[in-house]
Design a protein around this nucleic acid. Sequence first.
DNA 1: AATCATCGCAACCGCCAACAA
DNA 2: TTTGTTGGCGGTTGCGATGAT
Length: 439
Amino acid sequence: MGRHSCCYKQKLRKGLWSPEEDEKLLRHITKYGHGCWSSVPKQAGLQRCGKSCRLRWINYLRPDLKRGAFSQQEENLIIELHAVLGNRWSQIAAQLPGRTDNEIKNLWNSCIKKKLRQKGIDPNTHKPLTEVNENEKEKPPTISNKHNEKASAGSNELNHIEAENSKEPSMAAERHLLEVSFSPKINNSNDMTTPPPTQEFFIDRFGTSHESSTSSCRPSDLVGYFPFQQLSYGPNISLSVNPNTTLCFNPNSRSSDMISEFNSNMMPTVFPSISNLILPPLKPSVSLPPDNPSIGSFDINGVQNWEVSSFSNNGSSSNGSSSGIELQSNGSFFENNAFSWGQADSGKSEKEAEIHPLEGDPEDNKWSDYLQTPFLMGTTIQNHNLQPMYSEVKPEAHFTTNGSSTVWQQNQQQPPLQAAADTYTKDLHRLAVHFGQTF
DNA sequence: AATCATCGCAACCGCCAACAA
DNA sequence: TTTGTTGGCGGTTGCGATGAT
């Protein structure tokens, strides 16, 4: 299987590419493009299989490749992304312009892994090695390790680093609520007879690094679950954390995936089930009720819509705008990128902030720009002074279900992480059952 | 100087999903 | 519906370069 049929048909060269071969391939692709890779070798006069040509082009000949050693910022980013994406090298590479998945994979295996271990961090789980060892004593590895590895509790190595830099000035804790509800206007094959309850997601933000937990979940842990370049089409569910920012679940995600994520014991691990997050092909209409400008809702015909609201319980949202949620502290993806989208529409009244349908809307370009922005990271990372995304959020969140409302809120007493995670897992599982047919 | 070990990189392998016939 | 082809991805291997003994 690995070797395609074309490779059996003729005697093909293997191994390192010669400069002549490179030149042939480069010349051919520059002139004609690659088109169908299987036909490239023949057209280019190469004794290689198409797959080999493709690999050579992607990993070496492509003109937009960035050569040279990885910067510290790039390494930090890789670590951060790996914490949330796991070994999804192509998705990680998508956030690092000019770098290939192979390159990043090699770097990880040969260099970063080692560095992390030296710092006492398990590169697979991103937890302190001691903690990992204890956990391993308690329970043997499971089949879902692959997922667990992909979806770890977050980049604790970065927390670790941050802890070392804990002399930063502390910031007031802020608390945000994401109120997520399903609109009853569901009109597709996955109709639910009863609209699911509103779910409120509290995301707390603490500015005091001394509170950081070795296994805390930070907003930057979440953001990595939004590989915007992996956008696919046909969302039935959309999620927004900012009234002007809409992300969508891929409804085709297998429920088993989700369940397996639910079974993982760390909160952020639920998100890989939406790792195929999609941005909507339609622009949702976002409206803010006058009585609560912080609540956003949007309607997409035939699409299950989640209403999203935000507030901060200190009376003002972190970004000074009631229509946006700033989920991330210093240097985060959220702050720099995805979650500042809302501010892009600064010309509009917050209460009336609305994203119009695609057709004939002068805002189209802006929206499509958003949609086409490769996670915004790919473009902005190079332009921003990339700081490690070592936020200081200590969510230790859990769900509580109260009638029609499921609340995921900060526990003032900050229960032990495991307990919180268990509660979280339980409630998410309930949600999974509830939404099972949808997911 | 010779040998061995380690490292980093490039390429291959095996699998999967999408698609077309 | 089945089968074959292709593109893509992640894991693994092979090999040259480098460093240590």
